[in-house]
């Protein structure tokens, strides 16, 4: 679904002997020439560390992102909606797995990455620390959260690191289905009874600002955006992407006949952009730092599910062992 915390932390701490300036220069020249970097190529340690962190945070976000949606799976209003939601959740798991394997090409193990999520050391997108209170939230997540994710992910398809860019191409193809199914849920509710309309409006009210914040801190507060841009890991700044999202989404809300919960929102004729009111960055930092409505619950459930799934992994190993033994007996 999405990666955001990316620019909320200090650049990855990298220690070790100084790197050869000639190699560094050649690496930057390759990036500047739009060459892709592949796993076995030489790369600066900081580039590797930044990518490991970004890709794994992105993977963790996909995995945790299954929870708010899974909350409504058994209560979907129709069988059709249930099948659609199950397919979407399955995609999130798939996206997590594509991304973990992309991160592993940088020399980090799957166990280490999963361990970082379970221990609480790793971050994931803070949007998933908000609760899904009604069915309309499933519509709002698909429309807004996946819509914001697409804005962020399309440029990542041209990221300088080959395996990450390729994983993003697979993911972007599937995200489009996510956004459209979400918007269709919103359309159905918006055209429904007054209570259904109110539900849709309530979901927009609660998900609008967290979605706008998904692009991360404003450019003037973003810590390591510049380096990521120089390395062409990032192609647009947080504020540029946020503006694209707002410009695309406001007319979609108008089409639904719903109002965006921002009294200061206005269309600026000169720049041809929708301008939002001030963003509550205190809330953003609170949620990033662990104080969102569901941070604790999300992590606890992830740990429980991991522990409860241990028997499945053990059974798979036992079965693999049995198959090997049988094959050996036959060969003997």
């Amino acid at each position: 679904m999405y990666t955001q915390a990316l620019s909320t932390e200090r650049p990855a701490a990298v220690s070790g002997p100084a790197e050869d300036p000639a190699l560094l220069a050649r690496f930057q020249a390759r990036i500047d020439a739009e060459e892709r970097i592949e796993p076995m190529d030489w790369m600066p340690r900081a580039y590797r560390q930044t990518l490991i962190r970004q890709i794994s945070q992105h993977a963790h976000s996909e995995i945790i992102g299954m929870q708010p949606e899974g909350n409504w799976l058994t209560r979907a209003p129709t069988l059709k909606r249930k099948l659609q939601l199950a397919a979407k959740i399955q995609d999130e798991a798939g996206h997590g797995l594509y991304l973990y394997s992309a991160a592993e090409t940088l020399g980090v193990s799957r166990e280490e990455l999963v361990g970082q999520l379970l221990s609480g050391k790793a971050k994931y997108s803070s949007i998933f620390n908000y609760p899904t209170l009604t069915w309309a939230d499933i519509g709002a997540i698909g429309w807004l959260v996946d819509g914001a994710a697409i804005m962020n992910q399309i440029p990542l398809c041209r990221c300088s690191y080959g395996p990450y860019a390729r994983a993003m191409i697979l993911i972007c193809k599937e995200e489009s289905f996510h956004q459209r199914q979400g918007y269709e849920i919103m359309m159905t509710l918006a055209r429904g009874t007054p209570r259904q309309r109110a539900m849709a409006q309530d979901a927009l009210n609660r998900w609008w600002w967290p979605s706008v914040m998904m692009f991360g801190p404003s450019d003037k507060d973003s810590i390591h955006s510049d380096q990521a841009m120089r390395w062409k890991i990032k192609r647009f700044t947080n504020d540029e992407l946020r503006q694209k999202f707002v410009d695309a989404t406001v007319p979609q809300a108008q089409y639904l006949g719903l109002s965006v919960p921002d009294p200061d929102l206005r269309f600026d004729a000169a720049s041809q952009h929708w301008l939002t009111g001030p963003i509550d960055w205190d809330e953003f930092w609170r949620v990033v730092k662990g104080d969102g409505p569901c941070n604790k619950q999300r992590l606890e459930l992830r740990r429980t599910v991991h522990a409860d799934g241990a028997w499945v992994r053990e059974a798979a190993e036992a079965f693999a062992e049995k198959r090997r033994a049988r094959r050996q007996a036959k060969a003997a």
Binding site: L97, A316, A320, R323
Partner: peptide
């Protein structure tokens, strides 16, 4: 892409689930 599996047959099944939806 790539994936982890306990043996070859399960790798094929996992590949079906992860990469061909």
């Amino acid at each position: 892409g790539s994936l982890h599996a306990a043996d070859d047959e399960m790798a094929l099944q996992n590949a079906r689930d992860v990469y061909t939806r």
